[in-house]
C-alpha cells in the first residue's frame, strides 16, 4: 500500500474508499442480476415464443436515474470540497521554485540554494511550490501525497502541501515529455523542522566561507564530481559505460577529438566541458539533438571543476 504522507493523502483515501465500495456493490448487483437471469431464463428452461412483452418500466428507470444522480452529486460535492483544500494554500507557506526541464527538476529556495532532483522540506509546515517549465509540459507528481500539478511553459502553476511523514518520497514526471520521461525522477525529503533549519543554516554558513577550503586534492574532487553527476541528473542522458542514451557517453572522452554537428573537429578539454555545461547548444556533438538544459547558475565554479575532474578520471 502507498504511504499516506500528507493530509491530502488521507482525504484521498477516504473518498477513494467510498467510491470504491459504491462501485463494487453496483458492479456486483449488475453482474449477479445478469448471471442469475442467464441461468434462470436460459433457453433450456424457457419457451422462446412465450416470453412476456415488457416495454419498460418508467418508474423503475426514473428511480435509477434519480438515485444515481443523488449519488454522483455527493461524490462531486465531496470531491470539490477536498479539491478546494488542495487549492487554497494557508498564509505564509515556505515557498520553493521548481523548474521542469527535459529531463530534470531544478529546485530553488528563497535563499538562493539550488538543488537538482532533490527537495528537502520540513515536516508539518505548509510548503508551496511555484512551477515553471523551460521547455515542454511536465507534471510534478508526488504519489505519497496524492498530489500532482502540470508544469506548463509560459504559465506559473502552484501546488501546496503539508508533509506528515518523515522520510524520502519519490517525485515523478506524469506528463509525457520525451525520451527520458520515465527517468525524470526526484526525491522529496521530509525532515523535522529543526533538521531543516540546521540544513539551511549550514549551507548559508558554508556559502559565506566561500568554500575556499574545498580545494582538495584531485582524487576527492573526482569523487565529488561523481556525486554531482548523479545528483544533478546527468545520468538521465549520459552514461559512463559507453552506451548511447539521449546524449553522448562521457567515459574516456577527455582530451580526445570529437566530430561536431557542422562537421568540424574539436578537442574536448576543460573549456569545452565548461562551455557544454553553460551553453549546451554551442558545440554539439554530431548525431545528437540539442536537448540539454543549461547549468548556468546551478553549478558553482568549484562544482564545474569537480565534474571536469570526474570526467578526466573516467577511462574508456
Amino acid at each position: 500500500m502507498l504511504p499516506q504522507a500528507s493530509s491530502s493523502a488521507h482525504s484521498f483515501e477516504i473518498l477513494f474508499g467510498v467510491i470504491f465500495w459504491f462501485s463494487l456493490i453496483s458492479f456486483l448487483a449488475v453482474s449477479t442480476a445478469i448471471v442469475f437471469f442467464v441461468i434462470k431464463f436460459h433457453r433450456t428452461r424457457r419457451d422462446p415464443f412465450k416470453t412476456p412483452f415488457i416495454h419498460g418500466h418508467t418508474v423503475l428507470e426514473t428511480s435509477v436515474a434519480v438515485g444515481l444522480f443523488v449519488v454522483v452529486m455527493i461524490f462531486f460535492i465531496w470531491g470539490w470540497a477536498d479539491y478546494k483544500k488542495i487549492l487554497n494554500a494557508p498564509q505564509d507557506p515556505l515557498e520553493i521554485n521548481v523548474i521542469g526541464k527535459q529531463w530534470l527538476w531544478e529546485m530553488e529556495y528563497s535563499n538562493g540554494r539550488k538543488l537538482i532532483n532533490e527537495m528537502v522540506v520540513p515536516k508539518d509546515e505548509p510548503v508551496k511550490l511555484l512551477f515553471s517549465s523551460a521547455d515542454v509540459i511536465h507534471s510534478f507528481f508526488i504519489p505519497n501525497f496524492r498530489l500532482k500539478q502540470d508544469v506548463v511553459p509560459g504559465l506559473y502553476t502552484t501546488l501546496w502541501f503539508q508533509a506528515s511523514l518523515l522520510g524520502e518520497h519519490p517525485v515523478l514526471c506524469a506528463e509525457y515529455c520525451g525520451s527520458a520521461h520515465s527517468k525524470m525522477l526526484a526525491t522529496l525529503k521530509v525532515v523535522s523542522k529543526e533538521d531543516y533549519d540546521t540544513w539551511q543554516k549550514q549551507w548559508e554558513k558554508a556559502k559565506t566561507q566561500k568554500v575556499e577550503e574545498a580545494q582538495e586534492d584531485a582524487a576527492s574532487m573526482a569523487e565529488q564530481g561523481k556525486g554531482l553527476f548523479t545528483q544533478k541528473g546527468c545520468t538521465a542522458c549520459h552514461t559512463v559505460t559507453g552506451q548511447k542514451l539521449i546524449g553522448p557517453p562521457l567515459n574516456g572522452i577527455f582530451g580526445k577529438e570529437v566530430e561536431l554537428q557542422d562537421g568540424s573537429k574539436h578537442f574536448r578539454d576543460e573549456n569545452y566541458i565548461r562551455e557544454s555545461l553553460m551553453t549546451p547548444g554551442a558545440k554539439m556533438v554530431k548525431g545528437f539533438a540539442p536537448l540539454m538544459p543549461t547549468f548556468q547558475g546551478t553549478l558553482s565554479d568549484s562544482e564545474v571543476n569537480a565534474v571536469i575532474a570526474y570526467l578526466k578520471s573516467l577511462k574508456e
Binding site: S8, F12, L15, I19, F22, S23, K148, A174, E175
Partner: peptide, 17 residues
C-alpha cells in the same frame, strides 16, 4: 464505474495520467 473516480476532482488529482 471507474470513470466516477476520475470525474471526482480531488481523486483525479492523484489518478490523472
Amino acid at each position: 464505474l471507474t470513470g466516477l473516480f476520475l470525474a471526482t476532482l480531488s481523486v483525479d488529482v492523484h489518478l490523472h495520467d
